[in-house]
């Protein structure tokens, strides 16, 4: 699926933390999915990995156990690596890029949606519990409940578009929101919108009904 010009990118802080390996899994999934769609962020991520290599060279060394080299050679001669690095996902032709398909078990048609009211559906994806990530399906023209944020929230558009007070986000665009942002995103009228949204804190909804619904949303 062709991705038009992406206007909203990942921050340096997120790319650096992903490169360093310190992001929660839920955020890493959003980063990996965005980078699969965005050559600019892929190049920036490459720079942060290069910086990691330079840090590895610069940041000192720790003495190894006596016989470490022999032990490692013995490990090698035993055969296959005990810990093989994961193969990278291959290029997807669907709506969902490869890393997201790994978590869903397929493309859009494989998602097990649950209705959460007002036509909005969601599917929570299994990750470590330090943050959570879900797919959101918002019918064209519908509002996502008005909410502010605690912590950090990343929202990556995969299909359709949404708009808030300031801007429009289409496929590949990622919105990085922190506690300062209060907004009311609305799905664009043209097409139903599918987003991948990660948060490291429960959302606090401002309307009474969404607040009652919050325990059921498990977010």
């Amino acid at each position: 699926m062709k991705t038009p010009q992406i206007k909203h990118h990942l921050t340096d802080e997120l790319l650096m933390a992903y490169s360093a390996g310190s992001l929660p899994e839920a955020f890493s999934l959003v980063v990996a999915t965005h980078v699969s769609l965005c050559d600019e962020c892929r190049a920036r991520l490459g720079s942060f990995d290069t910086l990691g290599g330079a840090m590895l060279e610069e940041c000192g060394s720790a003495e190894l156990d006596a016989g470490a080299l022999d032990a490692t050679m013995a490990r090698i001669l035993e055969g296959a690596p005990q810990v093989a690095p994961k193969e990278k996902p291959r290029k997807s032709r669907g709506v969902f890029p490869g890393p997201l398909q790994d978590y869903v078990g397929g493309d859009v048609e494989a998602v097990k949606w649950k209705p959460v009211g007002m036509g909005v559906r969601q599917a929570i994806l299994p990750t470590s519990h330090d943050a959570s990530v879900r797919l959101l399906y918002i019918p064209a023209g519908c509002a996502v409940p008005d909410h502010g944020h605690r912590g950090t929230e990343l929202t990556l558009v995969l299909q359709g578009a949404f708009m808030d007070e300031d801007d429009r986000f289409a496929r590949g665009d990622v919105e990085v929101a922190d506690e300062d942002l209060e907004h009311t995103p609305i799905a664009d009228i043209g097409e139903d919108c599918i987003c991948l949204a990660a948060t490291d804190a429960p959302l606090r909804f401002r309307g009474i009904v969404p607040r009652l619904a919050q325990p059921f949303l498990k977010i």
């Binding site: 390996g21 994961k86 890029p97 490869g98």
Partner: peptide
């Protein structure tokens, strides 16, 4: 990538797996 960068990424992935006990989603 340089060898240092490549080793950094292998070590980083090992860190996430062994220390943080999480998966690391990789880009396509």
């Amino acid at each position: 990538a340089t060898v240092a960068t490549w080793i950094f990424t292998i070590a980083r992935n090992r860190k996430i797996d062994a220390l943080r006990k999480q998966n690391r989603p990789e880009p396509e």
